[in-house]
């Protein structure tokens, strides 16, 4: 479903992704863990083409992300095409990034109305369903700043789901939340996983990762150090670096 092959990315002299390869099967959950600055978020942003990659390739749903063949030459896709590709992967950010000047309902209906050709009434009906699903029924007319952090993040999840993505990307979705609010957000993510959504979750919540992941990826210094099922990575890590990271947590 999502595949990265030999992905390289650097900002100036700093290499943030170094020969990263990863494969995420349909309807599975991959949790990416690792220290700050190890390239976890960058990898996620590359999947959504918020960052360009310098080498390698990323494939989502059988389509090259950001590039296309014309004859036997590889070209960058048009901005329009990149935007279309982005609708297939919903993204949730650490700092929520709701649109502060819109109501919660408008946040959720904005993209479907613009891109799926939905009329206001139809889009709002779907948005209400989604908001109810993430436990925000009754908050439709609130502004983002009137919500708690946990509610904002759940609204952001509803906003991403409104485009009916084939996969979801979570970039440290609970890092800005206190434990109580974290729980509600994790519940929503867990329900998505149970519903068969393909997901990549960058997280520092080890217990959650262990519980929800089909595959755990440990990254350090721009490289994938270890990959495997949670029991393996958490209980019997093969790499010294992984051991050190896990024991320090």
């Amino acid at each position: 479903m999502i595949e990265a092959v030999g992905v390289r990315k650097s900002f100036g002299a700093l290499t943030v992704l170094d020969d990263v390869s990863l494969s995420v099967a349909e309807s599975t959950v991959t949790c990416v863990i690792g220290p700050s600055g190890s390239g976890k978020s960058t990898l996620l942003r590359c999947v959504n083409r918020l960052e360009r990659i310098d080498a390698g390739r990323i494939v989502v749903d059988g389509e090259l992300v950001g590039h296309e063949w014309r004859g036997d030459r590889l070209y960058e896709r048009s901005r329009r095409d990149v935007a279309r590709q982005r609708t297939r992967t919903g993204m949730v950010f650490q700092n929520f990034r709701l649109f502060p000047h819109m109501t919660v309902l408008d946040n959720v209906t904005e993209a479907p109305r613009a891109l799926l050709g939905l009329k206001r009434a139809a889009a709002e009906e779907r948005a209400r369903d989604l908001l109810a699903r993430v436990g925000l029924a009754g908050k439709e007319t609130s502004r983002p700043h009137q919500l708690s952090g946990g509610e904002q993040q759940r609204a952001a999840i509803a906003r991403a789901l409104a485009m009916e993505p084939r996969a979801m990307l979570f970039d440290e979705p609970t890092s800005a939340l206190d434990p109580e609010l974290t729980r509600d957000v994790l519940t929503v993510i867990r329900e998505l996983a149970d519903g068969g959504m393909t997901m990549i979750v960058v997280t520092h919540e080890m217990r959650f990762a262990r519980e929800i992941a089909d595959q755990v990826v440990f990254m350090d210094n721009g490289r994938i150090v270890e990959t495997g099922p949670p029991q393996e990575v958490f209980d019997a890590p093969r790499n010294d670096r992984t051991v050190r990271f896990l024991t320090s947590n």
Partner: peptide, 25 residues
């Protein structure tokens, strides 16, 4: 810039992002 990125991640186009997300803010 986060706001633009959030809108881009949804697949919104440049003009729509400018008109609906950036300019009002």
């Amino acid at each position: 810039r986060d706001q633009t990125e959030a809108a881009e991640a949804l697949g919104l186009g440049g003009w729509r992002i400018f008109r609906r997300i950036v300019l009002p803010q």
